[in-house]
Design a protein around this nucleic acid. Structure first.
Length: 799
RNA sequence: GCGGGUGUGGCGGAAUUGGCAGACGCGCUAGAUUUAGGAUCUAGUUCCUACGGAGUGCAGGUUCAAGUCCUGUCACCCGCACCA
């Protein structure tokens, strides 16, 4: 067959998508398989080669599963709220709704041009009121359970986007969107109490099948540690300073305390502090620093000693000074620490600079030179009741003692903070809450959902971070659902992560207006069997969505505790130059150009062949040609098809069936394709190929390059689509060769090769090996120390 | 600093339990075909001082046998980061 990709691809795309050939059937008798890819953000630039890599993996799995007899759900949708659209809308003065609709249409066309067999009829769009109705509904449930609340705290704030950011959105101290350094700002903000789920988010990871890296990143983000809370009385007051420490065993070595610049005790006790001016100056200085600068300047510790306020070490009863220093963070632990300079590097450095006492309580290091932090060795000294104990024993004993005395207790701490949930932006879900002077915050009645995002003229956020919605009196002024009195609506919107935290549930029942999804459908489809997406979403999207899912499970809305059974993440496709693809570098590859020139089948095949799926790999334009050549060869092979068997390549064929199946399941698409190439190359050397065997080859290639295979399949006389043509089985008996080549080594060096029958006995093989002319010449007259035979592999003769 | 990962030809990358290093693809070389180019086909392609030897970041070790296991070390990438 002459391979004209444009004609063939257009033909089959029309057939598949207009004929709706990839139905996911609710409650089918077949076993279900739920394959999920992260839904795209419909940006104006459309599809990127990265999307092709991200979706092709599960596209292969989905097609293969259908052939294996599964009822497959492989849906797609759009995560369409968010800043890029809003910014584009501001620049072009177009309504974000219009921008979004245009972009979604474009994106859908592009997905179909790539041949993806998604369940397009189940498409969701997070900006559709019929969808965000349920996002808002979930928020109300969280609010009712006290898991959505308002609090005044220091938040990450981007002065450029004028928006509050979550911890996850400000990694590295820079705004995730615009790279502007994030500053700390005290604001009254909405939080979701994700910390209540920290332990379950951690333990739920045990069930998740994924890379160690993905697991450890989540574990690290949750950041569990265990230790103790200890109360330090503040001298001449009735206050105590509570600290969190992972090293309660070093309590006798606590010679000073440090509190964060934002610590509330400074205001409470400002009368007693004689150098309040210096403290205020330091606070101001710390506030001006971005979090990033605080980290960068970490080498040089700064701080102010409180004059007039000191604490008492509850075990030594000694009077110890209190410092304010920005190396202690208000957001972690209690915002105050006990400093043990002898056994903590940061405290050591601070003590050296500020001349504090350094008392050794664990023997084993040289504290005149550096802090000794080893926890596995070392014996407690200068520590009263725990003298002579190991660190581990001392921890246990001192915690018991603290609890007995009522001055502390065992404690667990998490680095993860509650999720700052509101944004002062237009293009997001309105938060369905009203503020009433009498009743406080009240959720709007569920029957009033969705709370529609009103039209505005200006999408820009106001100065000082006012949401654009605040400028619409008709939206803001309402009545309290509880008392009927005048009330004001919440004008902030939800972050982009809201809609994406439950979308996979909606696919099971995308048009339900009575609940987010019917329980019987959820029971049929959930959990997601395999979820693929970006590495960059592992600490945010995956954790957020697991949190929401666990919450929904708790209130009886979903049937499984965890949403995902297996998670993989694709590596980046880099530019030809090895750098990350970016417009400014001019190294961006447009997938549509490749589809136009070589075809979607070639593009998909090449992107999976390019390298290890989970590793980043540079693009190579010549590689595309190689993929295309393979398809050309496959098409040309048609000329050799005859209706008579050919046993020459039987073993290779069956080995390939097995290997390709295994490789696909293990995300090793590159080697699966390599093996298919080898097979097609070998078949090309035969004078004829049996028709049945050619059909097997087409089935194996089909998930990767469905258009050309479907065409060749039809030309063989099939009326039915390949979608449900059974995936080929391999036969163990046909994989066995009757003779096998083995290697003959002398002293571990390869010297000769010979063919033997597979069942030849060890002694016979060795005898035969030694009889080879080449080998005989080399061992003649030498003493043989040892002879090793590895069945069907090698003989090694040691002289 | 902590956690995870990676180091193999000119390039992307392959190598169950230790058992022929470099599969497959790109590129390159030669030949065939072609007016020429492109495309296609065939053969070759780790390196070297080449009937032999060396070789998987580097240095050791275990073993009949090491890319693979052990010890030490270097480089790079990703994530987190004054987390108490």
């Amino acid at each position: 067959m002459e391979y004209h990709h444009k004609q063939i691809e257009a033909k089959w795309q029309k057939h598949w998508f207009e004929g709706d050939r990839f139905q996911a059937v609710d409650f089918s008798e077949k076993p279900k398989y739920y394959a999920l890819v992260e839904f795209p953000y419909p940006s104006g630039v459309g599809m990127h080669v990265g999307h092709i890599r991200a979706y092709s993996s599960l596209e292969i799995i989905a097609r293969k599963r259908r052939m294996e007899g599964y009822n497959v759900l492989f849906p797609i949708g759009f995560d369409a709220f968010g800043l890029p659209t809003e910014n584009y809308a501001i620049q072009t003065n177009t309504h974000p709704r219009v921008v979004t609709d245009t972009n979604i249409t474009t994106f859908l066309n592009q997905l179909k041009m790539a041949g993806y067999g998604f369940n397009y009829d189940r498409q969701v769009d997070t900006t559709d009121p019929a969808y965000y109705k349920w996002t808002q509904w979930i928020f109300i449930q969280l609010f009712k359970k006290g898991l959505a609340f308002r609090d005044k705290t220091y938040v990450n704030y981007c002065p450029s986007c004028k928006v509050v950011l979550s911890n996850e959105d400000s990694q590295g101290g820079k705004c995730d969107r615009c790279d502007t350094p994030v500053v700390q700002k005290e604001k009254d903000v909405w939080f979701l109490k994700i910390t209540d789920y920290a332990e379950r988010l951690l333990s739920g990871l045990e069930e998740l099948e994924t890379l160690p890296r993905i697991k450890s990143e989540q574990e690290h983000w949750i950041g569990k540690s265990t230790g103790a809370h200890v109360d330090f009385p503040v001298k001449d007051t009735d206050e105590v300073l509570k600290v969190y420490t992972t090293r309660p065993d070093t309590l006798f070595g606590a010679t000073f305390m440090v509190i964060a610049p934002e610590h509330p005790i400074l205001e409470r006790q400002h009368d007693k502090i004689n150098n309040m001016n210096a403290v205020h100056a330091y606070q101001e200085q710390a506030r001006m620093k971005t979090e990033f600068e605080r980290v960068e300047l970490a080498k040089d510790k700064t701080g102010v000693k409180l004059d007039g306020l000191s604490a008492i070490n509850p075990l030594t009863n000694e009077d110890i000074p209190i410092f304010v220093a920005d190396y202690v963070m208000i957001g972690y632990g209690t915002g105050a620490i006990m400093a043990v300079p002898a056994h903590d590097e940061r405290d050591y450095e601070f003590a050296k600079k500020f001349g504090c006492d350094i008392v050794e309580v664990i023997q084993g290091g040289d504290i005149t030179k550096e802090a000794y932090t080893d926890v596995d060795e070392g014996i407690l000294v200068n520590s009263g009741l725990i003298n002579g104990l190991s660190v581990a024993d001392a921890k246990a004993k001192i915690i018991a003692y603290l609890e007995e005395q009522g001055i502390g207790e065992a404690a667990t701490n998490y680095k993860m903070k509650d999720w700052a949930f509101n944004r002062q932006r237009y293009w997001g879900e309105p938060i369905p809450i009203v503020h009433c002077d009498h009743c406080g915050m009240v959720a709007i009645p569920e029957e009033e959902l969705p709370l529609i995002l009103p039209d505005v003229d200006k999408f820009e956020p106001g100065e000082d971070g006012e949401s654009p919605l605040a400028n619409i009196p008709a939206f803001v002024h309402t009545t309290c659902p509880k008392c009927g009195g005048p009330a004001k609506r919440e004008t902030d919107t939800m972050p982009q992560w809201a809609g994406s935290s439950w979308y996979f549930l909606r696919y099971t029942d995308p048009h339900n207006d009575n609940e987010l999804a019917a329980m019987d459908k959820l029971k049929y489809w959930m959990p997601v069997d395999w979820y693929n997406g970006g590495m960059e979403h592992v600490t945010r999207h995956v954790i957020y969505s697991r949190f929401w899912h666990q919450f929904l499970y708790d209130i009886g809305v979903v049937p499984t505790e965890e949403p995902y059974r297996k998670r993989t993440a694709q590596g980046l496709i880099l530019g030809e130059d090895g750098d990350k693809m970016s417009k400014s570098k001019g190294n961006v590859v447009d997938p549509l150009e490749i589809i136009d020139e070589y075809g979607a089948d070639t593009l998909r095949l090449y992107i999976l062949f390019i390298g290890d799926y989970e590793q980043s790999t540079p693009w190579n334009p010549n590689g595309v040609k190689g993929a295309r050549r393979f398809l050309d060869k496959l098409a040309r092979l048609e000329d050799k098809v005859e209706d008579k068997p050919n046993a020459n390549y039987e073993t290779l064929l069956h080995k390939t069936i097995q290997a390709v199946g295994d490789d696909i399941e293990h995300v090793k698409f590159n080697t699966a394709i390599a093996k298919l190439m080898t097979l097609v190359n070998e078949l090309g050397k035969e004078d004829h190929v049996a028709r049945d065997d050619y059909e097997i080859v087409l089935k194996l290639v089909y998930p990767f390059a469905p258009h050309i295979c479907e065409e060749l399949w039809q030309r063989l006389g099939h009326d039915e689509d390949m979608v449900y043509a059974p995936w080929p089985d391999y036969e163990e008996s046909k994989m066995q060769e009757s003779t096998v080549e083995i290697v003959v080594m002398i002293n571990g060096k390869l010297r000769d090769k010979l063919m033997i029958p597979v069942d030849m006995a060890k002694d016979d093989v060795i005898a035969k090996a030694k009889a080879q002319d080449k080998i005989h010449a080399l061992i003649d007259g030498q003493a043989i120390k040892k002879e090793i035979y590895v069945p069907q592999k090698l003989v090694n003769i040691v002289l």
